[in-house]
Structure formats: C-alpha cells, structure tokens
Simulated assay, not measured.
Amino acid sequence: MTNGNRIITIANQKGGVGKTTTAINLATALAAIGETVLIIDLDPQGNASTGLGIDRRDRELSSYDLLMGTHSVEQTVLPTAVPNLSIVPSTMDLLGLEMEISQEADRVFRLKRSLSAAMPYTYIIVDCPPSFNLLTMNAMAAAQSVLVPLQCEFFALEGLSQLLETVNQVRQTVNPALDIQGIVLTMFDSRNNLAQQVVNDVRTYLGDKVYHTLIPRNVRVSEAPSYGKPAILYDLKCAGSQAYLQLASEVIQRERRRKAA
C-alpha cells in the first residue's frame, strides 16, 4: 500500500460497460461519505474528466505529464465540484505515450512511482482505457486491487475470463499484491430474462467476488455526464445514484474486512 492510500483500478478491456460511469460515481459516493478521493483519468478520451465538469481548456497538465515524469500529482491535480474529490485529468496526449516510453526500463511503473509520495487521499481511483495496453499496465502495477464493471449481457463471461487472466499475468510479472476488489454488474434490466441469467452465471462462477449491488440501466445516469456532473449530483434520488451509494458502502465494508483479516 502506498502511504495509506488504497489504489483501485477500474478496468475492463471491453468498451461500453459503464467503466467510467462507475469510476465517477463510486468516487463521488466515497467522497460523499467522508473519504478523500482522487481520480486519475488514464483514458485518452478523457470521459471521466469531462463527466466531472473539467473543461478541456483547463487541462494544462494531465496524467500524460504524470506518466512522463515531468510533473507530480500535486502539480497535475484539479479540484472538482464534489467536496473531497479531485482529479488528474486526461488529454489526447496519452495516445502517444506508449510510443514515447516503450523503450524505457521503467515504462510499466511510471504511475506507481508518481503515486509513491505521501498524499492526502484515502482512495485513489484509476480509470483505464477500454483496452489492455501500457496505460492499463501502469494502472495495475500501481494498484492494490482491480474493480471490474461487467455489463449484464450475453458475452459478459467470455470477456471476464480474459480480464481475470490478464490480472493473473500482472500478478505474476509486475505486481504480486494485485487482487480483484470485486465485480460490479452494470446496466441491469430486471425485465430482461437474459440479464438475470448473466447475474446468476457470474455469481455461480465468482461467488462472493461479485458485489450484491446491481447497477440498473438508468436514463438519469446516462444524462449526467453531458451536464459535467456525476449522477449522484445530477439526481441523487434516481435508482442509479442510489445503487452507486450502495456500491460505495460495499467497497468500504470489503476494505474493513480486508484490513481485519
């Protein structure tokens, strides 16, 4: 663990599973219950930054500068409209990063090194791109655990087994301490029999690694990023926001059990 911070990487190599939505709203929910939280946006698309209202013109420094080693977290971090929640934003510069550092011996450990300084955050949430590349490797090398958003759809288990294999490879090569924090099932539609079947299959396959909380399909959650707000700020009472608050409570309960073990 890095100076008391708990670093959780949110990853899935499949796009459109609610990864960034989960990063934003889990971080907001943790901040709302008194944790100090930092999001590191490692996706070149920068959706986590946009979804928290960070204008592209304000991103003079970004996670690219962090990974290049030219600036520290303190220099790249920006406040958000959510009390206790800050972000290191992303820019399209990240697209060229892999080529720029691919020959460097420490290329996988750039983020870990940047986060090694003591910082005033209890949780650091890293939002990864929807692919397994050097950015995702940096996130997994720096983290203690991986949280996997999984869409309730037919191909979910197929993609999940690939991701679990990836985590296993990272554990064997660069980060023996890496663990699966949990699997969160997203975009659940209770009217859809297939969605319920996916839930049952994933729970059978992974048991208590799967969170009890189901994140429902929710129009308000989908609308929120266009207003530069987490769903929890946009509409606290909607089903999606309530689910993310419940998820944050589960994450903290798991962390308490882990510390007590």
Rank of each mutant, 00 (worst) to 15 (best):
I54N: 06
F109W: 07
L38H: 00
S131V: 09
Y211F: 15
P120T: 07
S90R: 08
T22R: 03
G34Y: 11
R6L: 01
V198W: 02
P130Y: 02
L95I: 12
A117D: 15
D235M: 10
T91K: 05
L26C: 02
M92E: 13
S90C: 07
I124E: 03
L214M: 03
K229N: 08
A260S: 14
F154E: 13
D65R: 05
A29Q: 02
N5D: 04
D43S: 08
S226C: 02
V184N: 06
I39M: 01
Q246V: 04
D235I: 01
V148K: 12
V126M: 01
A239R: 15
L147Q: 03
A31K: 14
N47G: 10
D201C: 05
R203E: 02
K237N: 15
D41Y: 07
S86Y: 04
N168F: 13
V88H: 03
L163R: 06
N168R: 15
A23T: 15
C238D: 07
R258W: 11
L178M: 09
F188S: 02
A32Q: 15
S131F: 08
L185S: 14
Q103I: 03
N192C: 13
S241Y: 02
N168M: 13
S190K: 09
D58C: 10
I54E: 06
P149Y: 09
M92H: 10
T36G: 05
L111G: 05
V184S: 00
L67Q: 00
G15W: 07
M140F: 06
P83I: 04
P79F: 07
D65Q: 05
L163E: 02
T50I: 12
T9V: 05
I101R: 01
F154T: 14
F155K: 06
K259D: 10
F155V: 10
L150D: 03
I10D: 04
I24D: 04
